[in-house]
C-alpha cells in the first residue's frame, strides 16, 4: 500500500469524472502498472456529486475500499468546493487540482485549511477553445497526469493520440482539438502561477 498512488476525483454525474478515472487507469496500465479505477455510485442522476477513485501501483492491488487519505484530489466542478469537503484526508505532501478560471490563491480559502499544493486549470476554457464544447475531463486528465507524475507525459500523450484515433475514427476532426486540450492543460499546471504551496 505504501507504494500505491491514490487519487480521488470529485465531479458531478454526467461531467465525466468517472470516465477520466477509468482513462487514467487505462493509461497507467499501458505503462505496465497495476491499476484500479472505480466510481462510488450514489443516486444515479445528472448533476449529483459523484466520487471516483484510482489506485496505481507497481505491485498487485488488493484493497477494495474507497480512498480516505489520497495523495491527490482532482475537482472537476469548482462549485463542489462549497458543498463537499474535497480536501478531507488529502495528504499534506500531495496536491489538489481544481477546474476553475480562478488562481490557486483565490481557490485556497475554499479548501478548509489545506496546506499542500494547489493547482488550477481552466478546463472549461481549454475545452471550449479546442473542442468548441465544455468537456472538462480531457484537460483534467492531462493535468492529473502532469501533477501526479504517475506516468511520463510523452508516453501518456502518445497513448491518448492512439485512443482518440480509435474513439473518433469517424470524426477525425476532433482528434487534433483533444490533443491540443492535453497540451494546454499540461502548460496550465506547469506555469508558475499554478504551483503555489504554503511551506
Amino acid at each position: 500500500m505504501d507504494n500505491t498512488l491514490e487519487i480521488r476525483w470529485h465531479g458531478r454525474g454526467g461531467q465525466g469524472a468517472k470516465t477520466a478515472a477509468l482513462l487514467l487507469a487505462d493509461a497507467a496500465f499501458k505503462t505496465g502498472q497495476n491499476v484500479q479505477g472505480f466510481p462510488e455510485y450514489g443516486p444515479e442522476r445528472m448533476g449529483a456529486p459523484i466520487t471516483a477513485f484510482n489506485r496505481i501501483s507497481r505491485e498487485r492491488i488488493r484493497v477494495h475500499s474507497n480512498i480516505y487519505h489520497p495523495d491527490f484530489v482532482v475537482v472537476v466542478d469548482e462549485m463542489l468546493l462549497h458543498s463537499v469537503h474535497v480536501t478531507e484526508g488529502l495528504k499534506r505532501d500531495g496536491a489538489i487540482i481544481v477546474n476553475t478560471s480562478r488562481t490557486a490563491e483565490e481557490i485556497r480559502p475554499l479548501l478548509r485549511g489545506y496546506k499542500g499544493a494547489v493547482y488550477t486549470v481552466d478546463a472549461r476554457a481549454i475545452s471550449e477553445e479546442t473542442l468548441g464544447k465544455n468537456f472538462p475531463n480531457t484537460p483534467m486528465l492531462a493535468a492529473a497526469v502532469a501533477v501526479t507524475g504517475v506516468m511520463d507525459k510523452k508516453d501518456f500523450t502518445e497513448q491518448m493520440r492512439a485512443s482518440f484515433a480509435h474513439k473518433f475514427a469517424r470524426k477525425p476532426e476532433v482528434i487534433d482539438g483533444n490533443m491540443r486540450a492535453l497540451r494546454m492543460a499540461f502548460r496550465a499546471v506547469e506555469s508558475a502561477a499554478g504551483m503555489t504551496k504554503i511551506a
Binding site: 477509468l22 487507469a25 487505462d26 496500465f29 497495476n34 491499476v35 484500479q36 479505477g37 472505480f38 466510481p39 455510485y41 498487485r60 492491488i61 477494495h64
Partner: peptide
C-alpha cells in the same frame, strides 16, 4: 462477485 466493488472497477 461483488456489485460495483468488483463488477464496475477496472483492474488488471
Amino acid at each position: 462477485q461483488d456489485g460495483f466493488i468488483t463488477s464496475h472497477a477496472v483492474e488488471n
